[in-house]
Design a protein around this nucleic acid. Structure first.
Length: 221
DNA sequence: GACCAGGCACATC
DNA sequence: GATGTGCATGGT
């Protein structure tokens, strides 16, 4: 069994299923994926609630909303001006490409859709993969800062590895499976929050026994 | 009152 | 190509 699969087993045994993505519809996943950029999810929930209460949690309606009004609704999520524009950019793709029908949007080849998402200003690799995985149910592994930290501190990847390198490393050790990618990403966030925030707190970490000799690796400074 | 949170684009060297 | 910076609210 690969190291990463072994780590997954330990995390799942400790934490159990994480029930991600914490959103109700594909469209909410899409909107939430932009809103959660470098932001705590609880702040995103307030923003989503505002959008829902305003009755515009719908591709066409949200797309038609003036950018200033959209910004005001999503204010609790932070970076609200840039995120309002980013959302509009993404909504433009959704409306123009498939007339707001997300089911149709995910019908085509995932790699093509990924390129289209990445071409949207404000959608980077993590946001694109989160949309593909959690809304489209495509096997795209989401690499976030926690995944990077956990893997690097265990010596499984280099600290300076970029998104693509980390993703290739991970999927190279795992079977391609939507449910597995889904849980694993969420579990890495969970263990990262508990033990890997700034300084490592390895006591009680389910991955403690998988640390390299000498303890967790840390970047040079 | 610092410090942090499930990024990304852009400027500058 | 690498490194630095702006964007912003809300919880600990």
């Amino acid at each position: 069994m690969s190291v990463l699969l072994e780590a997954y087993e330990k995390l799942f045994a400790k934490y159990g299923p994480q029930q991600w993505w914490p959103a109700q519809t594909k469209f909410e996943v899409l909107v939430g994926a932009v809103l959660v950029q470098n932001t705590a999810w609880r702040n995103v929930e307030k923003a989503l609630e505002n959008v829902r209460e305003a009755g515009v949690l719908d591709p066409h309606r949200l797309h038609q909303l003036p950018v200033e009004e959209l910004a005001e609704l999503i204010r609790p999520a932070g970076y609200y001006r840039v995120k309002a524009q980013r959302l509009r950019n993404l909504l433009k793709l959704v409306v123009e490409q498939c007339d707001g029908d997300l089911e149709a949007m995910f019908n085509g080849p995932p790699d093509i859709l990924r390129e289209e998402l990445l071409a949207v200003r404000g959608v980077g690799p993590e946001t694109a993969d989160a949309i593909l995985l959690y809304a489209g149910e495509k096997p795209a592994f989401v690499v976030d800062t926690y995944a990077q930290r956990v893997l690097a501190r265990h010596g499984w990847i280099d600290f300076d590895a970029d998104y693509h390198m980390i993703q290739e490393h991970i999927v190279g050790e795992l079977p391609s499976d939507v449910r597995l990618y889904n849980e694993y990403h969420a579990l890495l966030v969970r263990v990262g929050k508990d033990h890997c925030k700034t300084a490592p707190k390895c006591e009680g970490c389910p991955l403690q026994e998988m640390l390299p000799d000498g303890g967790p690796r840390m970047p040079e400074w």
